[in-house]
């Protein structure tokens, strides 16, 4: 009795440490196995069940194969063999697959259903994301980052400018392709506040690898406050360096491609920069958002992101780059 209890305790402990190791291996802010939303949660559970069943089936089948070839190569009864073909080849898959299908199709999400209200339109570009939050006062334009309230099912309306992309936030749920000239829908719900990472999943050319974005799931109040701030135009430069940076921005023609609302910069080719200073990443998830990341990005776009349309501004002296970075970082 005691021996058995001790054994089971050791078993639990070993199991627990294995599970811990596994959990550590599964965690990550882009991991489908570390869910932070309703859909991802269901799918992670489904995966666990499926992978366990698959492991058992695999062991049985290959064990049987090993047994009949190595352990017991003598002749066995014909009846047993026929039974195996019918039982293993027909009955077992019918039952198991039938059950799995019933479960799988019952959780098939209907992405065309409206969510809890918030609609975010995302358009795939080469290789960045154009983002628009629909509000009663009109669209709030942003880029390369998604913010969404926790506990609310958000509808994403997706399309693309030139080639096919795919919108995917593994921590929250499955992906959906984005087509030029065709609209697709996806709805997701975040259940835990935090910062996650999404990435394009459909091969889209040279820098497919560098087409990512940050997702921040926020408490609803914080989200409302953020959205209101995001809707506002950019504030004036704060201090000397930022003002110089703004002049360089104008001189280099950055406003031809980029929009900064509340200024004369009205370009629509590249990402909106109105509040770029408050974002978590630069270059669609390519770099962080520290001051030096701004100057690195501006000077080395083509090295950092092969094929990108924005030319590198490596002819600018370092102090001008720093001033430009200060201006952009100041766009909070």
């Amino acid at each position: 009795m005691t021996a058995r209890r001790w054994k089971s305790k050791a078993g639990t402990r070993a199991g627990a440490s294995c599970a811990l190791l596994l959990l550590a291996a599964c965690s990550g802010r882009q991991s489908a196995l570390d869910p932070a939303g309703e859909d991802a949660e269901t799918l992670a559970l489904m995966f666990t069940v499926m992978v366990t069943a698959a492991a058992i089936l695999w062991l049985c089948l290959n064990g049987l194969f090993f047994y009949v070839t190595r352990v017991s190569p003598r002749r066995m009864s014909r009846k047993l063999a026929n039974g195996l073909v019918i039982g293993g080849g027909i009955l077992m898959p019918l039952v198991l697959i039938g059950a799995l299908l019933a479960w799988g199709l019952s959780i098939l999400p209907d992405h065309d259903q409206p969510g809890d209200g918030l609609v975010i339109r995302v358009q795939g570009e080469q290789w960045w994301w154009r983002v628009a939050y629909e509000t009663p006062e009109g669209d709030v334009i942003s880029a390369n980052e998604i913010r969404m309230p926790v506990g609310e099912r958000v509808s994403f309306v997706l399309d693309s400018h030139r080639v096919i992309h795919s919108f995917w936030i593994p921590s929250l749920g499955g992906k959906m392709d984005m087509f030029p000239g065709r609209q697709t829908n996806l709805s997701l719900r975040a259940d835990e506040a935090g910062i996650y990472r999404g990435q394009c999943a459909e091969f889209c050319g040279a820098s497919h690898a560098w087409m990512a974005f940050e997702v921040e799931a926020m408490e609803p109040d914080a989200f409302d406050a953020w959205l209101a701030a995001e809707a506002a135009p950019a504030g004036p430069p704060d201090g000397g360096a930022e003002a110089i940076g703004r002049q360089i921005f104008a001189r280099e023609g950055c406003g031809g491609c980029h929009e900064i609302r509340g200024t004369e910069f009205q370009g629509q080719v590249g990402p909106d920069l109105t509040h770029v200073g408050s974002r978590h990443s630069l270059g669609a998830g390519r770099l962080g958002a520290r001051l030096e990341d701004f100057s690195t990005w501006i000077a080395h776009t083509d090295d950092l992101k092969p094929g990108v349309e924005m030319p590198p501004f490596d002819h600018l002296p370092q102090e001008e780059l720093t001033a430009l970075a200060a201006y952009l970082k100041g766009l909070q």
Binding site: D39, A40, M46, F47, V51, A54, G104, S166, G174
Partner: peptide, 13 residues
């Protein structure tokens, strides 16, 4: 596993 459409949403590509 992959033939189950919702799981494929995660695993696809």
């Amino acid at each position: 596993m992959l033939a189950i459409a919702p799981f494929d949403f995660q695993a696809h590509d």
